[in-house]
């Protein structure tokens, strides 16, 4: 019996495909998410919109809170560790968390290095804005990738940009001659073997979700039509007027992403969406997507 293999780590992400992973800060929210049809919950101390508003250092959640969430639901429980904070990741693994998100939404603990994710039995998901970043994270052992988007804004534009960038760069690789791949790997700052693999297959070797700014059923369906495998919704649900109804609608729009009549139906009378923040209104220092190296 082998645990913690690539296949087992990447395999759980395969099972989450076509689903919605929801940020929750307590057991009650986790129950609402599960009831709405979420495929997993992401346990964190504060949703990104509040991290933005409150400022200060954002850290791993209280283990007690994570355990209460684990006890409240049967779906997988994910939790965030700071970039480079391998001890937070060790703690999350010892709690039996199903996926660890090494996340730019929390305040980084290391400004040069990410966690050596191969050293863990628990799988990791990491954010990326471009192919080089995605392949570096996979090279470090990430078993799942998500777009970074711009968390806590309720504004989908950055998630779209990051997904299109990654996809465009992958497509370009598939048209290259073999001798062009090494200099491209250098320019992307990506491991050569992974560049070679993507050039052959035209896709990432792991599941790729959208995250960062998804706030409506149509946002989720937009990302699905662009070709992501599933979506993370953070502040978009529990910062809206009626979280239970909105959560359910986003789940339904993610499954029926190609059916505009269903998207129209589930989008009706959802109440207030979260108040968005224009990404251009953010100072460079307030952008979370720039964190990660």
């Amino acid at each position: 019996m082998d645990t913690g293999t690539d296949r087992v780590k990447r395999g759980l992400a395969e099972m989450l495909k076509g689903g919605v992973i929801m940020d929750v800060v307590d057991a009650d929210q986790a129950r609402i998410a599960e009831e709405a049809g979420a495929v997993a919950v992401m346990a964190l101390e504060r949703v990104p919109a509040d991290i933005r508003a409150d400022g200060g250092v954002a850290r791993m959640s209280d283990p007690g809170m994570i355990e209460r969430i684990q006890a409240a639901v049967t779906i997988p429980v994910m939790a965030k560790a700071r970039i480079g904070h391998f001890v937070e990741a060790q703690v999350l693994q010892s709690l039996g968390v199903d996926y660890i998100d090494e996340s730019e939404v929390l305040t980084p603990a290391d400004e040069e290095h990410h966690i050596d994710k191969w050293a863990f039995t628990a799988p990791f998901v990491c954010g990326a804005r471009n192919l080089g970043e995605a392949l570096r994270r996979i090279g470090e052992g990430a078993a799942m990738i998500r777009t970074k988007g711009e968390a806590g804004t309720g504004y989908v534009v950055e998630a779209v940009r990051h997904f299109r960038t990654i996809n465009g760069q992958m497509q370009k690789l598939t048209t290259m001659k073999h001798e062009e791949l090494m200099s491209t790997a250098r320019d992307l700052g990506a491991p050569f073997d992974l560049v070679q693999e993507v050039a052959e297959t035209g896709k990432l070797p792991v599941v790729n979700f959208a995250a960062g700014g998804i706030a409506t059923p149509a946002d989720a369906a937009l990302m699905m039509q662009l070709g992501v495998d599933g979506v993370f919704v953070g502040s978009g649900i529990f910062k809206s007027g009626d979280p239970a109804v909105r959560a359910k609608a986003i789940v339904e729009a993610t499954t029926y992403y190609e059916d505009s009549s269903i998207i129209a139906k589930v989008s009706r009378d959802l109440g207030e969406p979260m108040v968005g923040i224009g990404v251009r209104d953010l100072d460079e220092g307030d952008r979370l997507a720039g964190r990660g190296w």
Binding site: M1, D2, T3, G4, T5, R7, V8, G11, L12, Q70, T74, P76, Q93, G96, V97, D98, Y99, T121, A122, P123
Partner: peptide, 14 residues
């Protein structure tokens, strides 16, 4: 019995 072997860290191949 769901999740009978434990959480994801107990997932395995054999």
């Amino acid at each position: 019995e769901r999740n009978a072997f434990g959480t994801q860290v107990d997932s395995f191949e054999a």
